[in-house]
Design a protein around this nucleic acid. Structure first.
Length: 269
DNA sequence: TCCCAGGCTTGGT
DNA sequence: ACCAAGCATGGG
C-alpha cells in the first residue's frame, strides 16, 4: 500500500531521525529512504517540501504509524523546549528539529542495544547488518529462535560482536524457550521498566534506558552515556550530573527522552 | 602505541 | 554504597 502524509519540517525530518543514534537500520539512498524494524520494511520519499509518500505491505502500516509515533504532536514538546530558553537546548532544537522518538521492534531493540555497549555507531550498524545477512534474508531482523540455535562461538565469529555475543546468545535462548516474554516489559512506569530490564545479563543502566525509550516508548527515560556526560560537563558546567537530571525532569517531565535526544544529536553533529 | 566508542560484570573495599 | 580491572573489536 502507499500513503501520502503532510508534515512540517519541525515535526518530521527523516535525515535527523536516522542519524540520531536511536536507530541502526534506517538509511537514505538518493531520495529514497528505507527503514527496517523486526520483520517490517518501509520505503518513502519526499513528494513536496512538506509531504512524504510511504510504501509498505498493507498489514504493516499500523506498525510504521506507531514506529514514527505519528499520533503524537511533537510541536508541544518543541514549545516547551523554546519556553525553557536554555541556550544549548535552543541550539539543539534548531539543529535537530524534526526529531521523533521511534517505537521500534522490541526484540531488535534489545539485541541492538546489547551490541551498543562500549561500541561505536558505525560498528554497531555493521554487526547488526551481518546478523541480518547471515541469519535472515538481509532485511528482516533474525528471530530469537534462529539466534538461539547458533553457538556463541559461531555468533562471535566474523560479526565484530566480541564479548557481547555471549549476552545475545543468552537472551536469545531465554526468549526462544518462552522463559522470558518481552511483551511483559510493556506498560510499566520508568522505574519499574528499568528495574525489570536490569535483571537481564548484559543490560546495565544505559542500555536499559535505551530499550525503555526506543523500544518501549517510555518517554521519561533518558540514557546517560559518554556523550551526555560530555554535554553535562561542557554545556551545563554549573551542574553536576545529579543536578542536571533534576533540572531536566523539572522542566520536561514526561518527555525527558525526547529532549535528551535533541541534545545528543546536536553534540555529535 | 594509546585512546575511545550510546558500558557491563565481577570482585574488591 | 562506591571503585577498578577486564572485557573484544575496530577506527583515529
Amino acid at each position: 500500500m502507499n500513503k501520502e502524509l503532510t508534515f512540517s519540517d519541525n515535526v518530521f525530518n527523516p535525515d535527523v531521525i536516522m542519524n540520531s543514534g536511536q536507530v541502526f537500520r534506517m538509511q537514505r539512498e538518493g531520495d529514497i529512504y528505507s527503514a527496517f524494524s523486526g520483520a517490517n520494511q518501509l520505503q518513502f520519499y519526499r513528494t513536496k517540501a512538506d509531504r512524504f509518500m510511504f510504501f509498505c505491505e498493507d498489514d504493516q502500516w499500523d506498525f510504521w504509524q506507531s514506529y514514527f509515533d505519528f499520533d503524537t504532536d511533537y510541536e508541544k514538546y518543541n514549545h516547551a523546549v523554546r519556553e525553557s530558553k536554555d541556550p544549548f537546548l535552543l541550539k539543539s532544537l534548531e539543529v535537530g528539529k524534526g526529531m521523533r522518538i521511534l517505537r521500534q521492534d522490541l526484540w531488535e531493540t534489545f539485541v541492538s542495544y546489547l551490541i551498543s555497549q562500549n561500541n561505536n555507531i558505525p560498528k554497531i550498524k555493521k554487526s547488526i547488518q551481518i546478523l541480518c545477512d547471515r541469519y535472515s534474508d538481509g532485511m528482516a531482523f533474525p528471530t530469537a529462535e534462529v539466534l538461539s540455535a547458533v553457538s556463541t562461538e559461531e555468533l562471535s565469529n566474523g560479526t565484530a560482536l566480541g564479548y557481547r555475543a555471549d549476552y545475545i546468545s543468552g537472551l536469545s535462548k531465554q526468549v526462544a524457550s518462552g522463559q522470558l516474554d518481552l511483551e511483559a516489559f510493556r506498560g510499566h512506569d520508568w522505574e519499574k521498566t528499568v528495574e525489570m530490564l536490569l535483571t537481564i545479563k548484559g543490560i546495565g543502566p544505559k542500555v536499559a534506558n535505551c530499550i525503555a525509550l526506543y523500544g518501549l516508548h517510555v518517554m521519561d527515560s533518558y540514557p546517560i552515556d559518554t556523550w551526555m556526560k560530555k554535554i553535562i560537563s561542557e554545556d551545563y558546567s554549573s551542574m553536576d550530573q545529579k543536578e542536571y537530571m533534576a533540572w531536566l525532569h523539572g522542566h520536561f517531565a514526561g518527555f525527558e527522552g525526547y529532549v535528551q535526544q535533541l541534545q545528543f544529536y546536536c553534540k555529535r553533529k
